[in-house]
Amino acid sequence: MHVFTEAQRVMDFQKACERNDLKEMGRLMNASHESCRNLFECSCPELDDVVERCREVGCLGARLTGAGWGGCAVALVDSNDREKVGDKLDVLFWSEPSAGINLKYL
C-alpha cells in the first residue's frame, strides 16, 4: 500500500511544485513520512522525533530519507522562515530549489 500511495504523492508533489504550493508540498511530505512509518515500517522512534521536531519549529513538511531505519530527515522550509528554523535546529546543510536535470536523448 505504501508504494502505491507514495507513487501518487510523487505525482501530486510535482504538480504542487509547478503551482509553487508550499503548503501542499509540506502536507505531502508529512503524509509520506507517516506512510513510511506506519505502512512500510522503515522508520524508528528517534527519526520520528527528528521529523516531529522539524514540524514543531516551523518546517512545512518533513520526512525520513536515506532508506529509513535511522537514516536522515529532509524538511521543507519557506525561505522567509529559514533563520527562525535554523536557530532551533541543528541543520546539516541547506539547499535551494533548482531547475532540475534536463536530459537529451541522442
Rank of each mutant, 00 (worst) to 15 (best):
L92D: 13
A31T: 03
S95V: 11
C42I: 11
L76I: 02
E83Y: 10
S32I: 04
E52I: 09
C17L: 07
M1G: 15
P45S: 09
L89Y: 00
G26E: 10
L103H: 00
P97V: 07
G58S: 01
D49L: 10
R37N: 11
W94N: 08
C54L: 04
S98P: 08
R63S: 00
R27A: 08
M29N: 08
S32H: 13
N20H: 11
K23I: 03
L76Y: 10
C54E: 07
V74N: 01
G71T: 13
N102I: 05
F4A: 09
K84W: 04
V57M: 12
T5C: 09
G100H: 14
C72H: 08
M1E: 12
F40W: 09
K15E: 05
S32T: 11
D90Y: 04
R82M: 04
A67P: 09
A99E: 14
C36F: 15
Q14N: 06
C59F: 05
K88F: 07
P45M: 02
L103V: 06
G66T: 01
A7M: 11
F93H: 09
E18H: 01
K104F: 09
P45T: 03
S35A: 09
A62T: 09
R63A: 03
R63K: 07
E18P: 05
H2V: 08
A75D: 02
L28G: 00
D87S: 13
E56A: 02
D87M: 15
R37K: 06
M25P: 00
W69M: 14
L92V: 14
A7C: 06
M25R: 01
N20C: 11
G70Q: 07
V3A: 15
A16R: 01
C17W: 05
R63F: 00
N80T: 11
K23C: 05
C54W: 05
C36Q: 07
R63P: 02
C17D: 01
L39S: 13
S43P: 12
P97G: 06
D21F: 01
V3S: 15
D49E: 13
T5G: 04
F93I: 02
L47K: 06
V51F: 02
R19T: 11
G71R: 12
A67R: 10
F40R: 15
V10L: 02
K23A: 08
W94K: 08
V91C: 02
R53A: 13
N80L: 12
R82A: 12
E96L: 14
K88A: 15
E18G: 04
S95A: 14
T65W: 12
L92R: 12
P97N: 08
N80P: 05
L47Y: 08
S43L: 07
L64E: 00
S98M: 14
S35W: 00
V85Q: 11
L64S: 06
E18L: 07
D81H: 04
G71K: 05
K88S: 11
E24I: 13
L92H: 03
S35D: 03
P97Y: 00
Q8V: 14
N80S: 14
L47D: 03
W94D: 11
K88L: 15
E18S: 00
D21S: 02
S32R: 05
C36Y: 15
D48W: 11
K84N: 08
N102P: 02
A73H: 12
S35L: 00
E96G: 07
G26D: 02
D78P: 08
L22Q: 04
Y105E: 10
D48F: 06
